Amino acid sequence: MKESLDLLIFGAHPDDAEIGMGGTIAKHTEQGLRVGVCDLTSAEMSSNGNVETRRKEAAEAAERLGLAMRSNLELPDRGLYLLPEYVERIVLEIRKWKPRVVFAPYWEDRHPDHIACSKLVQEALFNAKLRRYIPHVPAHTVQESYFYFINDVIPPDVMVDVTAVYEKKRSSLKAYRSQFEAAGAGNDYVHTPLNQGYLERVEARDQLLGQQRSVPYAEGFISKLPYLTNLF
């Protein structure tokens, strides 16, 4: 039997989790927690790179962040819809790894796949706890779920100070050379928002979030339930 995870992060594409919460991942893995990422697609519709390249880059980023596991459901890129079979695949992933906390992209974003990923994970979180849904696989109830930002940001419900591990986030993002490096132009190279200063904008966003609580870098999250604490 596989060991359960403390945190399981879902993303539509390899690099989504790193963009939104690479620092939070690194902070938890440094503390010895088991963190995993599940990419729903292989990003086969990306303008630059290819499936094999993205697979290698995702593995490199996973190693740099200290992930306990990384999986890919190989659902169709730009074909993520709220279909029962897709929800079932995500439910099985949740039941397989039995995470304490699940993360997904925030449900408002300029990329339709990020929105679809958020909706699919929300459906799967509900179904994963129903014992009569796929009854031959034991149900699992996730304790907490949060939503991270990729492109569009609103005031967060919760922030994590990632200053001490920010270099690890930078390193994980730099693993995706096919997406973020502007160099190496050729016949198959296309200018996209990702290779025109995107990483600098991600870092500026994390700095602006941190400024709200006087820390150099922070990552923000949305919760659909009130944040509960025992102490102030």
Rank of each mutant, 00 (worst) to 15 (best):
Y166D: 07
G23E: 08
K174E: 13
P135A: 05
D77K: 02
P105F: 13
P138R: 14
L130S: 12
V121H: 08
V51D: 02
A26W: 02
L199V: 10
S171F: 05
V158T: 08
R34Q: 15
L5Q: 10
N50C: 13
L92H: 01
P216S: 14
A59V: 07
S71R: 15
G184N: 09
A104G: 08
Y106S: 03
V153K: 02
L82V: 10
S214V: 06
V37W: 02
I154T: 14
I9F: 01
R205K: 11
F180G: 03
R89M: 13
S178D: 03
I115V: 13
N151V: 06
Y106V: 03
E57M: 02
Y86Q: 07
R95S: 05
E144S: 10
S214C: 09
E3L: 09
D157R: 06
V102I: 14
R70A: 00
E88M: 09
P138F: 09
N50K: 09
L65C: 08
G49Q: 08
A175F: 03
V160T: 08
L231D: 11
V101M: 13
S172K: 10
R170A: 04
V87I: 13
E200H: 11
L5S: 12
Q212H: 14
D77V: 01
W107S: 05
Q31C: 12
Q179P: 09
V35I: 14
A12P: 03
L228V: 15
G220E: 06
P193E: 14
F103I: 02
F232V: 10
C38K: 01
L225V: 13
K169M: 04
W107G: 07
E167Q: 12
G79Q: 05
L67H: 01
E57W: 05
D16Q: 11
Q31V: 02
K56L: 14
I19P: 01
I25P: 04
D157G: 09
P14E: 05
V158A: 05
I94A: 07
Y227R: 03
S214P: 01
L82F: 04
D77F: 02
E167Y: 07
P99F: 00
L8K: 11
K174V: 03
G66E: 02
R131P: 00
Y81R: 12
L40C: 06
G66V: 01
E52V: 13
L40M: 13
D6V: 06
D77H: 07
L208C: 03
F147S: 06
F10W: 03
A116F: 01
D206F: 04
N195I: 06
E219M: 05
V102S: 13
T192H: 12
L67M: 08
L92F: 01
S223A: 13
E30K: 14
P135M: 05
P76N: 03
N187W: 08
V165M: 03
F10A: 04
Y189M: 08
